[in-house]
Amino acid sequence: MKILVPVKRVIDYNVKPRVKADGTGVDLANVKMSMNPFDEIAVEEAIRLKEKGVATEVVAVSIGVAKAQETLRTALAMGADRAILIQTDDEVEPLGVAKLLAKVQEEEGAGLIILGKQAIDDDSNQTGQMLAALLGLAQGTFASKIEVEGDSVSVTREVDGGLETVKLSTPAIITTDLRLNEPRYASLPNIMKAKSKPLATKAPADYGVDITPRLTTLKVAEPPKRSAGVKVADVDELVAKLKAMGVAA
């Protein structure tokens, strides 16, 4: 079984995003970029399934600027077998990404496609569900456990009240939640090896998909700022404050 893992290059999660003064977006100049954390979890899960003998090949796919190659090389260094970059300087929305990925799946015929549940830049939480819809496949979103059993897969999902397990026919779409696994660090020898693994570069036009954005961002602003309040010296003072607020009797 082949596994497809879409990975997105995003602002590193340790960086505090700064809104540009002209209100057109977030300043990404000279900012550290990394693989979306949920996608690292997706890559890790795919590699573990390969190590268990469930999967035979892991293919990483990214849609984005030329530098998204670095993100794909990270996936290859972690253990993916080959990579596909669909290169574009345009911003591609989740619907466009899902349409491109659907075309990739038509060519690849993977048994599982594992995505992150959410990209930490647009915080959309859509692409996996959209891809499942376009392909007419089952979706196991927010996964914290995956078990492949013959031609179905059992997915434990993190939901509002706790956990839920669903059984999906394969091929299926899965999106990862934080507690699915802890991604490995690529070792130096593997980083070196990754340099010679195959990485194909394509263009959106190769897939004949219209990726014109549907949404226009009119403005990006900073959220209302909270200012630091007061420090209290001890518990008695805190109790007094709580009483004054009517929180405690």
Binding site: I11, K16, P17, V19, G25, V26, I120, D121, D122, D123, R214, L215, T216, T217, L218, K219, V220, A221, E222, P223
Partner: peptide, 16 residues
């Protein structure tokens, strides 16, 4: 809508 973990608020218009 919030983007970047709520560190920015985007005003977006839909053409759909």
């Amino acid at each position: 809508r919030p983007i970047y973990a709520g560190n920015a608020i985007a005003t977006v218009q839909s053409k759909d």
